[in-house]
Design a protein around this nucleic acid. Structure first.
Lengths: 196, 196
DNA sequence: TTTATTGTACCGACCGGTCGGTATTATACC
DNA sequence: GGTATAATACCGACCGGTCGGTACAATAAA
């Protein structure tokens, strides 16, 4: 049990507040009231607001990594590129989950410095894994398209209706798959076994 | 003279605070202190915090639209698509300008509702103009790639070093140009004259 | 009893905003 | 010209209220 029920409820409440009212309204009292847990209970579980913010990013990263591993297993038979996995991860975040990521905005707003670990995780994955695969120019474009799409959703910018968005993610994935199949038909073993 | 020197100084200070310390630290006292204008002076120019936030988005939109018009004039000989213009606009925001856009985060954090006009502007431009041009699937991918790249820069996610980023923007632009040249070689007049 | 957890009253710092006042300049009247 | 009037731009002390955080008594679990 990595986190208690109480902690989860508090984090849920915090996310909900950010979504509904903006990061500026994320106050300890508001979190306590919304979760129907007393302020004392909140402070017991998260001694400072910083601890709460850290836990919020933590849960977000955890959620993303769980998805990624699940999708990695699901796609394994196709011998997928890291880019394909990443696109699948982002597209798997339906509206609700995508908007939950907006909790990051609360962290950026309150304590930009706490973003550092997340920044590193994200960028490392990109540079070390995706860029090192075949055809970095195309991969970069596909990655940023998926990333941009995700951010648009996160800020609920209604560029695209759900069906169209799904279609775009599908397009991105099939383009990535095409690159992957085309780029390295001979050394499948490298991608599978390589663990850098 | 659309805005006074004082107002500009106050908006500069507000942007700087958001960049350095996060939206939560954007307080009236902080803006006054940083701009070395008294709190009274600040309130004289922006009667409420909301007015300050509105002016912040206003200046951002203004800046973007000025760039767009300038770039539209510059590219006019090439008979550019809206997508090309949009990519050029985003790529013209060098690091400093891109990070200044992060002032939007302050608005989202403090008063998400004030984003509405900006949201509409952005999405209208996309759906009405870019999507209506030839080959919407490719345009969508190119647009979101540019958008994602911009957002990454805004949040100073160091995915790419400056040279690489420039290269990606150049790639996006040449792809957009290829689509544009290929898509409508016969009816240039339509794109030029059509004013919907 | 000990320990873990919760509820609540409270504190001082800080927040957005008000208000009485000042400095400067332009205009009006004599 | 000299002086009263007024508009503009700005100043900074202050107010009511909110914030993150503390103190501590009450309760539950062992």
């Amino acid at each position: 049990m990595p986190r208690s029920i109480t902690k989860e409820a508090l984090l849920d409440a915090a996310e909900a507040i950010v979504l509904e009212s903006g990061a500026a309204h994320l106050t300890l009292d508001a979190v306590a009231e919304r979760s129907r847990i007393s302020k004392g209970g909140l402070i017991y579980n998260f001694p400072t607001k910083e601890a709460l913010l850290v836990a919020m990013i933590g849960r977000l990263i955890e959620n993303l990594e769980n998805r990624r591993e699940r999708i990695r297993r699901e796609l394994a038979p196709q011998n997928p590129s890291e880019l394909m996995i990443e696109i699948k991860v982002l597209s798997s975040l339906v509206e609700t989950d995508a908007r939950r990521s907006a909790a990051i905005l609360a962290v950026i707003a309150n304590r930009p410095d706490l973003m550092e670990p997340f920044r590193e995780t994200l960028c490392d994955r990109f540079t070390k894994r995706i860029l090192s695969e075949g055809h970095p120019e195309r991969s970069t474009i596909l990655f940023f398209a998926a990333f941009g799409l995700h951010f648009a959703e996160m800020l609920s910018l209604p560029f695209l209706d759900p069906e169209r968005r799904k279609k775009v993610y599908a397009d991105l994935l099939s383009l990535a798959r095409a690159d992957n199949d085309l780029g390295s038909p001979a050394h499948e073993a490298d991608l599978q076994g390589g663990q850098t």
